[in-house]
Design a protein around this nucleic acid. Structure first.
Length: 496
RNA sequence: GGUUCCGUGGCCGAGUGGCUAGGCUCAGCUCUGCAAAAGCUGCUACAGCGGUUCGAAUCCGCUCGGAACCUCCA
């Protein structure tokens, strides 16, 4: 197994990754709230963890990757007093909440597939785990860590800390500071302490989404679903929990409190947080109104873009930075990424079409094999170092040079050697496709190409080059197309 | 105000004590019917000021600039 190190937010340093029970790895990532289209900032986080999932799998772990869908409980606006996001959209659009959830879930899945992200092993929903959540609330009340107030239930942070909990340890916050700085908010009278967070919310009849509970009709608090679902599918303690940096506080802090409260030990060994995608140095977010939708990118319709960019260009662009660094989104940066990505794809195509052939007794220059082996090792080293995809890509470019040299015969296969060539193929293809999740994108619109072929056909016909004419016809046929050679017009059609 | 992070060559972006990351752009060369591709070469930076050290982009301090979190957000 590779000596993988990961940056653990809890310890604020890179740590050697040791799973609880190798070769099995439990990975949980906070998924989207499906009340709107996902934007590229959201996508970046999911692609970062997709790469982690791919690499863990590549180096031999059996990963159970759980990524939830939040379809209830995530509130709009301040604290615990906002409206439910799904419910709000449902009212606005006069739809059933489940219609909202369905629409944006489908969009999310499409977008992730477009970016060549692998689906998680389990994709649980908050509404599908109502029983587990109600049970967890009961248990926390029984343990004296939560209290009911007006039909809502709150997690008691002071009590939790009195019993040895360390609320704030993930985000580096000191409880006393938090207490001193908390603003006064409306409706806090229900809580014993402004920092206490809702694990169950009372819901009045106007609420579209509400469930029966021992505390009346209501819905679960946002933080609770991740605790319940991660516990259910990965156990009370699992290996890796990921999410965007903006979830560190309070969401993940609350998850630790709930998990610890329920099971008397921390729920997670390694906490990983991916950094934000920025636009002109500012975080991309819906509320700031500077977000890009994937569809705007593919169509090039966003006002800040001067052309369209393909999904793989964007994936490559994101991989060229480290997941813990902010990444700034701009035309120039994307253009550079597009060029680089295409060069690598061209290399991939060449490499796949090459075969080793050499005369017997040819003299092999060992340096090629050594260099390929060195790059291969460097690729592993880079990814083992907290998933440094940027450095890994650098080594892919180093291998690309070898591919091009072979292709242009600047280095002969004889010199290169069979073993070196085999490793070049394996390493390049595996890292490019399997680990980094990049792939060749065929150009989608072939209308222009067909038109050009048709022009050639006309030309050959005029010149009475009937061999060529037949050749062109058979090309069309091989693509399921036919040429319609009519009196006044030549056109193509789908073969019927 | 509190906590944390960042400031790298024309652009993007790795790198945390000595060993030129890489990509894009630009210039030159080789190759070449043209065009391209490819290969080679060049452009050698670390916000500013101090300090530690034989040696700092990398550690420490200050200054300037920017960001995230502290409230829903990937």
């Amino acid at each position: 197994m590779q000596p993988l190190t990961l940056y653990n937010t809890l310890s604020r340093q890179k740590e050697r990754f040791e799973p609880i029970s190798a070769p099995h790895v439990g990975l949980y990532v906070c998924g989207p709230t499906v009340y709107n289209y996902v934007h590229l900032g959201n996508v970046r986080t999911f692609l970062s963890f997709d790469t982690l999932f791919r690499y863990l799998t590549h180096i031999g772990y059996k990963v159970r990757y759980v990524r939830n869908l939040t379809d209830v409980g995530h509130l709009v606006g301040d604290s615990d007093e906002g409206e439910d996001k799904i419910g709000r959209m449902a009212k606005l659009e006069k739809l059933e909440p489940m219609e909202i959830v369905q629409r944006y879930t489908l969009d999310f899945h499409n977008v992730m597939a477009t970016f060549n992200a692998l689906p998680p092993s389990i994709e649980p929903t908050a509404t599908g785990h109502m029983i587990e959540q109600i049970e967890a609330v009961k248990e926390l009340i029984d343990k004296g860590l939560a209290y009911e107030s007006n039909g809502s239930v709150y997690f008691d942070i002071e009590q939790y800390n009195r019993e040895g909990g360390q609320y704030g340890k993930l985000s580096g916050r000191i409880l006393d500071d938090l207490l001193n700085e908390t603003r006064e908010l409306d409706g806090q009278s229900e809580k014993r302490n402004p920092l206490d967070f809702a694990i169950w919310k009372n819901a009045s009849p106007e609420h579209l989404m509400r469930w029966k509970s021992p505390w009346g009709m209501g819905f679960p608090g946002w933080h609770l679903e991740c605790t319940c679902m991660s516990t259910k599918y990965l156990g009370t303690q699992f290996d890796i929990h990921g999410g965007g940096m903006d979830l560190k506080f309070p969401h993940h802090e609350c998850e630790i409190a709930q998990g610890h409260g329920l099971n008397n030990h921390d729920p997670v060994r390694y906490w990983m947080h991916s950094n934000m995608l920025t636009v002109n140095g500012q975080k991309m977010s819906k509320s700031l109104g500077n977000s890009f939708l994937p569809s705007e990118l593919f169509a090039g319709t966003h006002p800040l873009l001067d052309q369209a960019y393909s999904p793989m260009t964007v994936r490559f662009f994101m991989l060229q930075s480290h997941y813990r660094s902010t990444l700034d989104f701009s035309n120039d940066a994307l253009k550079a990424a597009q060029k680089g990505y295409r060069r690598l794809v061209n290399g991939l195509r060449l490499l796949k079409s090459m075969t080793f052939e050499a005369e017997e007794g040819a003299v092999v220059e060992p340096k090629h094999g050594e260099e390929v082996a060195r790059d291969n090792q460097a690729l592993y080293d880079a990814l083992n170092d907290d998933l440094n995809t940027a450095v890994a890509i650098g080594h892919l470019f180093s291998l690309l040079k070898k591919i091009n040299q072979l292709d242009t015969k600047q280095v002969s296969m004889e010199q290169f050697g069979e073993a070196a060539f085999a490793q070049l193929q394996t390493t390049f293809v595996q890292f490019f496709e399997e680990v980094l999740g990049l792939k060749e994108e065929t150009s989608r619109d072939q209308t222009a190409m067909v038109g050009g072929m048709l022009d050639l056909y006309r030309e050959y016909k005029t010149q009475r080059l009937y061999d060529k004419v037949d050749q062109v016809r058979s090309y069309f046929k091989s693509q399921g197309l036919v040429i319609r050679d009519m009196k006044h017009r030549i056109d193509w059609a789908y073969e019927e």
